[in-house]
Each structure stands twice: as C-alpha cells, then as structure tokens.
Write a protein that binds this DNA or RNA. Structure first.
Ligand SMILES: Cc1cn([C@H]2C[C@H](O)[C@@H](COP(=O)(O)OP(=O)(O)OP(=O)(O)O)O2)c(=O)[nH]c1=O
Ligand SMILES: [Mg+2]
Length: 682
DNA sequence: CGCCAATACCC
DNA sequence: GGGTAT
DNA sequence: GGCG
C-alpha cells in the first residue's frame, strides 16, 4: 500500500522558530549538548586497556554509543495470533473499582519485632529472595483466586498486628496440577488451546505459524552476548560495533536512507520492506522466521561468565538503591543499573578492574567495587547495605507493585517490616492491595509461551468485541492490531509482564476501545484484576491476569493509540527502557522531544529545559522512519536491549530548516503484529 | 554544579 | 504535585 | 554514581 513517505531526516533544530534571532544561547546550548553527546558516544566504547589478552575491544575511535553490544539479528517473528474463542464466562466480574482510595489512617506502628522479613538476607543468592516465607495475610481475599475480577477489598481499618499465616492464595491453587506449565518447547498450538479455544470466533485464522514461531526459537536474542561474531566482518575489527551510521556526514546518510526507504514502498507493500536484505543477515530474514535464524544468533552468543556475575552484583546494588528514599538514591540506582548493562555488554572478560578504566559509565567508585568483587568475591558495600534493616525492609516492601521508595520508607517508619504486615495494617491503597495479593507470583518471569497465550486470549476477546460490532470476520486483524511488545518483541525467552499495544486502523472509535475490550474480557470469563481504573476513555491499562491452566497471575499492560501514533507507540513500547532513554536523549540533543506520541520540536520553558512538545510530529508509519528522521541506523527490536542507538549528533547544522516534512501518512506495514504472520497481511 | 526521558494514572 | 509506573 |  502506501509508500511510507520518506521522512527526511530532521536536522537539528537550532533555535526556536524564530529564524535568526537566535543563535544565541539556545543554539549554544544545543551545540554543547551535542558535543557532549558526541563524547559520550565516542568514548563510550573506547576502552582503554584491553584485556591483556587478545580480545581487542573496539577500536578506539568509532563512535558508538554507550554500550556496545552487537547483536545483530533479528527480532523475532511476529506472532500470529489467532483468535481463540472461548467463553466460559463468569458473568459479573467486571466491576469497576470504584472506591479506590487510600488506606485508612492507622498510624500506629505495628508491633514490631519479628525478625526481618525476608529480604534482609545478604547477598548470597542473588535475586531470588526467598522473601517472606509467609504469605499474605488472610483476610484479603479468598484463596480462591478464581473469582473474577476485582474484588477490590477495601482495606478495613484494622490495624491489627500482622499475623499472617497460610500461604498465599493463588499459588496454592490446585487445579492446574497437572497442566504443567507451559513448556517452552512447544509452541502455542497445543497447549494453548486448552483455555479458550472452544469455538471459533474467527474462523479464518490460520493456525498461526504456531508451531514454531515464537516459542521455539525463543531463545535467540536474549542476552548480552558481547561481541558477536556475526557482526559484520567488514569493519569487524572490533567486536561491538554498533555503528550508527557511517562516520560520514550523517546528513548524507540520511539521504541515502531515504532513497532506500523509497524502494520498499515501491516494492511489495506492506510487510515486506525488509526483505531486501543484502545488507547483512540480520535483516531480511524475516520471511523465514524460523529456526535457522535463531540458530545463527545463538552461535555467536557467548557471554563472559565473569562479566555476568559482576553485572548481577551491580544489579543487586541498583535494586537496593532503588528501594531507598532520599535524593540521589534514584540516581545511584540509575548509575548502577546502567553499569550492570555496560559490564554485560563488554567485549572482553573482566578479570581486573583496571581494564575498566575509560569505559564510560564505570567511574572510579564502581570500578573500585568491581575490583573488590573480583578480588574478594564480594562487595563490602553491598553486603553492608543489603544487610541493613532499613534497606532490607525497603526492598521487601517495594516488591509490591505500587509501593515505591517513599511509601516503603513511610511504612518502615511506621513499623511495617513485611508485605504481609503492610496489608494487615491496612496501610495500602487499592492498587497496592490488589498487587499485594499476588506479589509473589509477580516476582516470577513469564515463559515466552505463556506470554503468547495471554496475548492470544486478549486478541480473542478483542475479536469477539469487533465481531459484535459488525466487523467482518476476515478483517478483524486489519481493523485492530494487537501487538505484543516489550521484552517479548525484543525476542526474550521470558518476560516480566505482558505488554500489548492496540491500535485501531479503520477510523473507528479507538478511544473507548480499551474500556470495551476489558469488559469483553471479563464477559469472556478471564480472570483479571485491575490496577488502574477502567474508564470510557482510558488509553493505558494495568492489570493482573491469570489464564486457566496456568499457575500464576501475571501483570498485563494494555495501551491503545490512534493509528497515526502507532509507529511511535511501537517504538516506545518495545523498549528497552534504557534504549528509549538513550534515543530520547539523542533526540533531545537535536532539539526534539521524542515520546510515544510522536517527535516534536522541543520547547524550552524557563531556564533550563523543561521541554514541552509542540504539536508537530513527523508522520511515521513504521519505526524505521523514526530512526531515519533522527539520522540513526535502524535497529531490530532484538538489538534494542542495550542502550543506545546512537550516533553522534550530526555536526552540520544549518540554521533553520527544521520543519518536518509532512509525509503523506499512508498506512503501510505495521511492523510486527501478532495477527499477521510474516508476510501476508494485506 | 546540573543533568541523567518522557509520559500516564492515582491520590 | 508527588509518587509510582511504563 | 558518572560526567561535562
Ligand atoms: C520501565 C520502562 C519501560 N519503558 C518502555 C520500554 C519497555 O520495553 C516497555 C515495557 O516496559 P516493561 O514491561 O517494564 O519492560 P520490558 O517489557 O522491556 O521488560 P520486562 O521483561 O521486564 O517486562 O515500556 C520505558 O520507556 N521506560 C521505562 O522506564
Ligand atoms: Mg514487559
């Protein structure tokens, strides 16, 4: 269909609209930013010492962004979602949570003493905190999770101590016994079926490629792998190349790209654009989307064990700081979190902290800690922190979705030392209470196949809704797209939650879509509890869902966007978080503000930068156009795990000429969409 | 010493 | 407007 | 915490 009109790369925006008057400060600031960015990028990878041995890291000068990582390959196959049908319903459920409010006042501290909850435990086993052994308190909710939605219980006043006993509800649940949790091995087809399936709402769906697509190859991208082989040989010298565009003038590149882009349009419309490979294997293999591709990815991947263990410790430190209140802690969290990613992506194995000198993001403090870890096997700081009462309690409380550092601190000061106590004390609001019921389940990662099953069930309800609306059964997927994003789209073999992007493409009413979809899901009998209130105009939803035949409750995030924002929303919702921040930072340096709604000109308010978007966006029908607009090399979802996309800002900038080119928005390929299997669509 | 992304929903 | 989330 |  339409050709995505090429979007001309934007040039940096020097100053506001005012033409000249301004080279002044804004301009300077702009330049400064850019310069800074450049540096970051450039040195990001220049790693000074290389490991003694061979591994030569990257060549010095290239610019890349911060983390390196190279994965190449692709992303993963679009899933297919065929609608299943289903219906068992439990009627009611839906009930909105009206009363969402605050917890009672109860101030007085709860009893106290009891040994620390769980968390406190030192480092030993990282992650897996055995957490509180004891489950949540009783009164909230009946063990039987099954019951539909929300039973949003109000927190009764009761301050009563926290006793707690018995296991937590859900998990206990018997039924599923034998259904074993989804094996990853096998794709959706089979096991998924069980749930709904029953009757076909939508007939046509082909059995998606079910067989192999997602599940199987899951493995792929995943992690870290440092340097990868398959990175291109060409420049190969250095492992990580993240090259952004070639060194040459960005602008030129940009143009080049435009032309490239043009071609696809000419060629087979939709979906196919990326067929034209030739470039490198990473792209282009879409069509196949099969095992082979994954295999090739797998090969290269090899992570350095030492780096991984260092990264895990840094992650623990990051998590610890995240739960602490007080200014600065959040940035420590940020710094450690970023450092962990950087270490994971290093192209060489760390055996001595001195190798880290020069690596951007790993300053003296962190290097020292890493050195200590390497030498002694532990980080005294972490041990100390993690063992402290305050940090331990805070970390434990923050495991509840909705409880952050401030709330945890408040609770702790009131004497609360565990999730159970917080619940028992009636100090949590509705959202936190709901999440607290399932906090243990929510700590678990979700196998890719289960994510697939959840998305399919959402799609099934969506289809029923559309059918009822009169949408022809054969057009369901074209009218409304439902795409699994987040780590799933990046090809991870497991996810922390299920992120589904929904987009209505016929001019139909999209504003009320989310609301109606949730009602439909409830009507269809899905076990789901809301964390956000569902209103007629909600565009963002957070909830907790559990499929029949699966053991745990899982976090579900749904977002609905109008068609013209789809590419931006897809880019955003695919992440990763650090990748988004990196890309947005880059856009900002160019004078723009990138969000899930679009790319707009940054407007400064006040002294520094409070940027506010103005209204003009660069129309983008597919993600690639956004990269192009910023002059960045396109990255497949699976290559967006690490930071950066980046490229040094372009140097040339001429004053004005910043207006976004209005491209005719025609809708073309919807990137990856659950509903369409690779190349059909349209 | 300031910045470290930009946005949505709850209270 | 802060807090928590994405 | 890291960085300009
Ligand atoms: C948390 C977070 C997410 N996002 C975007 C990018 C994420 O991929 C997307 C979904 O958020 P998440 O579901 O939190 O992240 P994820 O799907 O990448 O990883 P996980 O397996 O843990 O679920 O939202 C941000 O832009 N900023 C953030 O701070
Ligand atoms: Mg996710």
């Amino acid at each position: 269909m339409g050709t995505p009109s090429p979007t001309a790369p934007l040039s940096p925006i020097p100053h506001s609209s005012s033409d000249d008057g301004s080279l002044s400060e804004q301009f300077d600031a702009f330049i400064a930013d850019r310069a800074q960015l450049c540096h970051e990028i450039i040195q990001a990878l220049s790693i000074p010492h290389q490991p003694p041995e061979s591994t030569q890291p990257l060549s010095a000068h290239q610019q890349h962004i911060e983390t390196t990582q190279a994965l190449s390959t692709l992303h993963q196959p679009p899933e297919s979602m065929q609608p299943l049908s289903t219906h068992h319903q439990h009627p009611e459920s839906t009930q909105p949570l009206s009363s969402r409010n605050q917890p009672p006042e109860s101030t007085q501290p709860l009893s106290s003493h009891h040994q620390h909850p769980e968390s406190t435990q030192p480092l030993s086993a990282h992650h897996q905190p055995p957490e509180s052994t004891q489950p949540l308190s009783s009164r909230n909710q009946p063990p039987e999770s099954t019951q539909p939605l929300s039973s949003r219980n109000q927190p009764p006043e009761s301050t009563q101590p926290l006793s707690s006993h018995h296991q937590h509800p859900e998990s206990t649940q018997p039924l599923s016994a034998h259904h074993q949790p989804p094996e990853s091995t096998q794709p959706l087809s089979s096991r998924n079926q069980p749930p709904e399936s029953t009757q076909p709402l939508s007939s046509h769906h082909q059995p998606p490629e079910s067989t192999q697509p997602l599940s199987s190859h899951n493995q792929p991208p995943e992690s870290t792998q440092p340097l990868s082989s398959h990175n291109q040989p060409p420049e190969s010298t250095q492992p990580l190349s993240i090259h952004r565009q070639p060194p040459e003038s960005p602008r030129r590149d940009a143009k080049r790209k435009l032309s490239d882009r043009a071609s696809p349009s000419a060629s087979p419309p939709a979906a196919s654009p990326r067929l034209a490979p030739l470039a490198d294997l990473s792209r282009g293999q879409w069509a196949s989307t099969h095992a082979a591709k994954w295999t090739c990815q797998t090969a290269p991947r090899k992570a350095f064990a030492a780096n991984e263990s260092v990264a895990l410790e840094l992650d623990r430190l990051a998590e610890t700081y995240k739960a602490l209140h007080g200014r600065g802690q959040q940035w420590k969290h940020y710094a450690y979190s970023k450092a962990a990613k950087i270490v994971r992506a290093l192209p060489f194995e760390v055996t001595d902290a001195s190798q880290l000198r020069g690596v951007r993001g790993l300053g003296e403090s962190i290097r020292t800690k890493v050195g200590e870890l390497l030498r002694t096997g532990r980080m005294s700081r972490l041990e100390r922190l993690a063992a402290s009462e305050a940090a331990g309690v805070a970390a434990a409380l923050c495991k509840v979705h909705g409880v952050g550092a401030a709330k945890a601190d408040e609770l702790r000061r009131m004497g609360v030392r565990s999730v159970d106590e917080a619940v028992a004390a009636g100090l949590l609001n509705q959202q936190q209470l709901t999440a607290a019921k399932h906090w243990r389940d929510l700590q678990e990662r979700i196998p890719r196949d289960e994510v697939t099953a959840i998305v399919r069930s959402v799609r099934a309800s969506l289809d029923r809704l559309l059918l009822a609306e009169g949408v022809p059964r054969t057009h369901l997927e074209q009218v409304v797209e439902a795409t699994a994003c987040g780590s799933y789209r990046r090809g991870k073999s497991s996810s922390g939650d299920v992120d589904v992007l929904i987009c209505r493409r016929d001019g139909g009413d999209e504003k009320s879509l989310l609301h109606r979809l949730l009602e439909q899901m409830s009507a269809d009998g899905l076990t789901i509890e809301h964390l956000t209130e569902v209103t007629a105009t909600s565009r963002s939803y957070h909830g907790i869902i559990k499929l029949p035949d699966y053991e745990r409750f899982r976090r579900l995030d749904l977002k609905v966007y109008p068609s013209d924002q789809y590419a931006y929303a897809l880019l955003y919702f695919t992440g990763s978080d650090h990748f988004n921040r990196s890309m947005r930072h880059y856009a900002k340096a160019l004078g723009y503000s990138l969000s899930d709604h679009g790319l707009v000109k940054a407007v400064k308010a006040g002294a520094n930068n409070v940027v506010r978007g103005t209204l003009n966006l660069v129309p983008a029908v597919e993600e690639r156009q956004i990269f192009d607009a910023l002059g960045l090399e396109y990255k497949e979802p699976s290559d967006r795990n690490c930071e950066a996309t980046t490229q040094p800002p372009r140097l040339t900038l001429q004053s004005d000429e910043c207006e976004p080119v209005l491209a005719a928005p025609d809708r073309t390929t919807p990137a990856i969409n659950l509903s369409q299997t690779t190349d059909d669509l349209e």
